[in-house]
Design a protein around this nucleic acid. Sequence first.
DNA 1: CCAAAAGTGTTGTTGATACACCCATGT
DNA 2: ACATGGGTGTATCAACAACACTTTTGG
Lengths: 244, 244
Amino acid sequence: MTFLPPKNTSEASANITSNTKSVIEGISIDCVIFSFDKKNLEVLLVHHAIGESAGKWGVLGGNPELEEGIDHAALRILYELTSLDNIYLEQLKAFTDPDRVRSERVITIGYYTLVNREDYNIKASVSVFEAKWFKINEVPKLIFDHNEILEFSLMQLRNRVRQAPIGFNLLPEKFTLLQLMHLYEEILGIELDKSNFRRKILHMKLLVELDEKQQDVSHRAAKLYKFDEAIYKKLTEKGFNFEF
Amino acid sequence: MTFLPPKNTSEASANITSNTKSVIEGISIDCVIFSFDKKNLEVLLVHHAIGESAGKWGVLGGNPELEEGIDHAALRILYELTSLDNIYLEQLKAFTDPDRVRSERVITIGYYTLVNREDYNIKASVSVFEAKWFKINEVPKLIFDHNEILEFSLMQLRNRVRQAPIGFNLLPEKFTLLQLMHLYEEILGIELDKSNFRRKILHMKLLVELDEKQQDVSHRAAKLYKFDEAIYKKLTEKGFNFEF
DNA sequence: CCAAAAGTGTTGTTGATACACCCATGT
DNA sequence: ACATGGGTGTATCAACAACACTTTTGG
C-alpha cells in the first residue's frame, strides 16, 4: 500500500479548494488520525473555518474522485494535511448519519491511520489546514457523526492491536520496552505488569535488540529496540496472537 | 437491529424491478449470506439472468434509497430474497473494484449475514430470484469483484467467530455439542478435540442444557442445548474470548 | 545516598493438549 | 456384535499473574 504523492504541494491542495466536478456524488471520506505522545493517545482534528460547521472541530475529510479507488483517495487526503506518505491506513466501514440524509453527503467511508509523532512534527508544518492534537478523552463535540466515527475507530484500534503489532506505527523507530508497554496500557485502558510484559513480548521474538541506550534520562538508561518487519511478516502468515 | 418488512411481497419486489430515481448514484450494496448445512459452510448465490452479467452467479446485491440508512437497505434487500427478518447482519466495508470504475456502480458496501438453514428452508420458497447454496470451496468465478467480497467476508467470519459466539446464528435453536464443534471446525478449518471442546464450551456457561435429546439417530442420542441470550449479553459487556 | 526506572527471578495457579476409556443405541 | 457417535477422566506441559528483588544512573 504505497501512495505516490504529487510532486508539489500546490497541486495537492488544488484538489480540495477547487471543487472539480469529477467527484463522486453522495460519498465522502473521513479519516481518524491517531498518534501517541509520550503518555497519551491523541487524535488529530481539523478546524472548520467556513460553511455551516464553522467554528467546530471534525475529523479530516474529503471526497474521492471518480476514477480513484477509495483507499487511494484516503491516502491522498491524508497527504494533503500531514505531508506524510507510507502511513498505516485501514478502512473502518461505511457510515450513514441519519442527520445527513437530505444534506449533501449521504454516505461516508471511515478510515483510521496510525502516525508516528516524530515524523508528523517534522513534516506537518506545510499544512494548509488548522489542525490540532486532542487527547483521546478530551475530544469536544464534533461535526456531523464524527464522534461516532471516532468512537468506532477507537474500538477497532483496541481490537486490532490485540491481533497484530500495528501499535508500532505509533512509536518512533527506536523505543524502549516500557514505552511500548505504556502504549498498550493507554490504548487498552489497562495496567500491565512490567516483568510479565517483558517476558511475553521478548518471547515473541518480534523485537530486535539494538546496541543503543536512551540518552539524557535522569535514571538508568534503557536499551532501545526496534521492530523487525521481516520477522513480523513471517509470523503473520501463520497467524499469531497479541493478547495482553 | 430490527427490520420491519413490508406487509406484502409485491410491494417488496417492486423495489427491485422498477428502478425508481430515488436511489443513491454510485453506491450499491452486496450481501454475502452464510449458512451451515450439517457439515458444510455454504453461501447463497444469485443467478443473473439479464444484463451484461447474464449466466453468471453473484452475491445478492441491490441499491440503497436516498432516505434510507445503508444497514436498513441491506436488511430490506435481504428480506426481498429470503423472506427472513431478524437476521444477524454485519457490515464488512466499502469496496472499489478497479474494473468497475467508469461503469455504473463505483462503490459497493459489503455485508455478510448468518442464517439458520431451517428458517431459510421454511420461508424462502416465495423468492423471486433464482438462488442456490454453494459449498464454500465450490464457489465458481463470480461477477465483478464478488469473489473478493466473499473472500473478505470469510476472513471476517473467521475472525469474529473467535471473539463472540455469533456462530450460533448458523445453527438451529436446539443443537448438540458436536454439531457446534463441527461448525467451529468447518469455519476455522481446524480439527478440535471432542473432550476438550466440551469442557471449554461448558465452562463458559453460555449454553443451557435442555431436557430433550436427539430423535431418530442410529446411535446414542445426544443432549440438546440452546444458547442463552441473556447470559451472552452479560458476558459481552465485560468482554470475553472465544479462541479455539 | 536517594529517587526512579531498568531489569531479573520465583512461585502458585490456570488452562490447553493429548490421550484412554466407557456408554447408549440402531442395524 | 459392532459401528457410530455420546460422554467422562486424567496426566503432562506451557502460559500467566503476582510479587519480591537487584541494578544502574542522575542529582
